[in-house]
Design a protein around this nucleic acid. Structure first.
Lengths: 322, 322
DNA sequence: CACTAAATTGGAAACGTTTCAATATCGAAT
DNA sequence: ATTCGATATTGAAACGTTTCCAATTTAGTG
């Protein structure tokens, strides 16, 4: 592999000059530039990025840390994040933490050792005191009131819209259905918005959160069905939850949407084999991804951000379940 | 950030000694090791991976190049690839090529500059003459009769099983449905196996491949429905294709599985909201992923592989469409 | 033509490691 | 005590860049 020295020799100039040419720094005479360019072409030289990163003490690598790329919401997110990074000449390193705090720590250490430029994280840990000062971080959907900037969808508003849409679809007794909340998670605000809107409109509204102790999924849903037999509208914290509920409800002889209207949250399914097509609050995945990257790169450049949380507007998408 | 020099100073030894300690090389006296360890702990020292990569002229980074991580099949694959890499201390860099040859080239260049240890690729290009000599590559589902080792599911056998299962389900006139084949793609063998088995059993068997010229998806399926009105069994090259077919068939008043049995290929859907549950040939995604990584790392170590193509067995999974 | 300022280029240090030849230390055998 | 081999340790070079200062060239001016 030809190095910058070889180029310098062939072109009859100093390595510093070659360096200036390839970084098109000013103050290099056109004729020298041409000589150098010729040598570069002749030797088929390409700069060694690793050496560069080393010398510069920083790289153009950004890590995406999430529980599992297998999850379709995350994989869509990852798609846009990679795309946006690539546009700025950055690369993406993928870290599946499995949602395990110890693995998250392990990865953070590794990333620090590897001097990544920044991290986009969807984490289960209280990462507040871990890397914040060293490496710029953007967190998705988790808000750790610190310098870790958070990008999320407008969960509160999404909850409000869900309530209104359920009512509009004819529901008299809507309920919120969601599993145990994560600490720091912004997604809990979906419930808050939902409940708030119900109060505003003076509508009775039930809330069913999964108890910590309950690990059996079947039991979770049947508990809900038993405990709230008169519910005629369900806002599930996730499309996944909504789908599972519909499944169980069907088994219990409840018809959707005739007996119960259902609205989910996410809207990631765009495949023909999703049936029934879920009514849902669609997350602006692409915009969240691009925003996260842009903010992160600003931080990488040393800029400071004016806000702690960036909430992107959501939209309601009618399906076959309302 | 403390460097190896700081550690050496504090411990009162030479940097070379510290280096041997952290790489636990032999020939270092226990007492010195302890001194060094103490200094490391005190300074909170961690070796700089970038500097290491630079010095060693190689990194522990493997690239995964695929059309789009958004595709659920690829995202499952990526999940296991990352997991397997991590177990060997390697990192994953994600490259979405969009299936565009020029973007693939661009990424290959970038990867070469970044001295990645190896590449797992699902590419649309004839990458045969591009990087093969420089960087170890494993290709998934594409077989370029060269030193680019290929890992794939047993597509031929999958096709045979599909035919048999359709017949078993009562189909008299089965057909293959698949879009235009990719060059070098091993997936075409699904058709070969299907047709071969039909011939063996003496059963008539139609084949409908998407013509190059035809880009309109709706037209594609309605063409098929028109042209083969008496078909009572469909083997689709992909679950995706199967799902789309079912959709269109339903619109045309054809009932699945009453009028037509359908079998897909992939079996990636494991979500409750996939309906109807597709009968399918399940790809051994996890094993493919882990095999690909293990083979790649062997190549990275300099071993040569004894085969050009590794075919992993598939299984049939009955759903609601047969 | 001499002089000055500006433009261009050369050369070397530095980034944090690994590695290798050279040197030092230690125990045991003489 | 002295020598020998084995075991430990040192110190410096090298990896491929960038960057800074000094040196040199060039162009412009009187």
């Amino acid at each position: 592999m030809a190095s910058i020295k070889d180029v310098a020799n062939l072109a009859g100039v100093a390595v510093g000059t070659v360096s200036r040419v390839i970084n098109n720094a000013p103050a290099v005479k056109p004729t020298t530039r041409d000589k150098v360019m010729a040598a570069i072409k002749q030797l088929n030289y390409v700069p060694d990025e690793v050496a560069r990163n080393f010398k510069m003490q920083k790289s153009k690598m950004v890590a995406l840390m999430l529980p599992s790329i297998w999850n379709p919401f995350f994989s869509e997110l990852a798609y846009y994040i990679e795309d946006e990074l690539d546009r700025s000449g950055f690369k993406l390193m993928l870290c599946n933490s499995g949602g395990k705090p110890e693995k998250e720590l392990y990865y953070f250490d590794m990333l620090k050792q590897n001097k990544v430029a920044g991290i986009v994280g969807i984490t289960y840990n209280d990462i507040e005191n871990i890397v914040s000062t060293d490496i710029p971080i953007i967190s998705i959907d988790r808000h750790f009131n610190k310098q870790i900037t958070c990008v999320t969808s407008d969960n509160f508003e999404g909850g409000r819209v869900a309530l209104r849409e359920l009512v509009k679809a004819g529901s008299k007794k809507p309920a919120f259905l969601g599993s145990v909340p994560l600490m720091y998670s912004e997604t809990l605000r979906r419930k808050d918005g939902f409940v708030h809107e119900a109060q505003t409109l003076g509508i009775p509204c039930a809330v069913y959160e999964e108890p910590d102790s309950l690990k059996d999924e079947d039991q979770y849903y049947s508990n809900f069905l038993q405990r709230h037999p008169d519910i005629d509208g369900v806002f599930a914290i996730t499309d996944m939850t909504a789908a599972r509920y519909i499944e169980k409800a069907k088994e219990a002889g409840i018809r959707v949407p005739d007996d119960v209207k259902v609205i989910g949250y996410d809207g990631i399914q765009d495949h023909p084999y999703f049936h029934p097509l879920l009514s849902t609050i669609r997350q602006p995945v692409e915009e969240m991804a691009r925003t996260a990257v842009r903010l992160l790169l600003k931080k990488v450049e040393g800029e400071s951000l004016d806000r702690e949380v960036f909430r992107i507007p959501v939209t309601y998408r009618a399906g076959e379940t309302t």
